[in-house]
Amino acid sequence: MQITEHKPLIVAFCCNWCSYAGADLAGNNRLNYPADVKIIRVPCSCRVNPMFVLRAFQKGADGVIICGCHPGDCHYTSGNYYARRRMAMLFSMLDYLGIERERTRVEWVSAAEGAKFSATMNDFVEKVTKLGKNKRLEDLRCKK
């Protein structure tokens, strides 16, 4: 690996009950996932307001992924169903504005799926790394 390669910043919103536990399991099982992934724990995938996603991009994220319980398994019964509609609409809009679609993703990861968590993150980071820096969404005023 070249040292000059762009290291992406990935924000992963993980619901407390499934995906965050899945990430924990991945750690316990010593399954690797890149350190570029910054996990933000949310009570449920439907806690993720479109503004969170956009704000992450505005502040320099190169990719945003939202992980929640599998449809039907949400701790609050239906939160992820709402999240699914919302994020489908939001990501489609980002695509419409010309933002690369590989920068956004929704993935359902249960507490038992440590391996899936690690595989998903590796794959996502790889795709986003290929895209390079997130030029289209950067906000000049948020630059340090």
Binding site: Q58, L97, D139
Partner: peptide, 26 residues
């Protein structure tokens, strides 16, 4: 809010405004 900029700019700020505006009424 971090999106209260008032001048025409070529950054994500105004896109953020427009996505949120449109999403809120979707």
């Amino acid at each position: 809010s971090g999106i209260e900029n008032k001048s025409p700019a070529n950054s994500f700020e105004e896109k953020l405004f427009h996505i949120i505006r449109a999403f809120h009424v979707a």
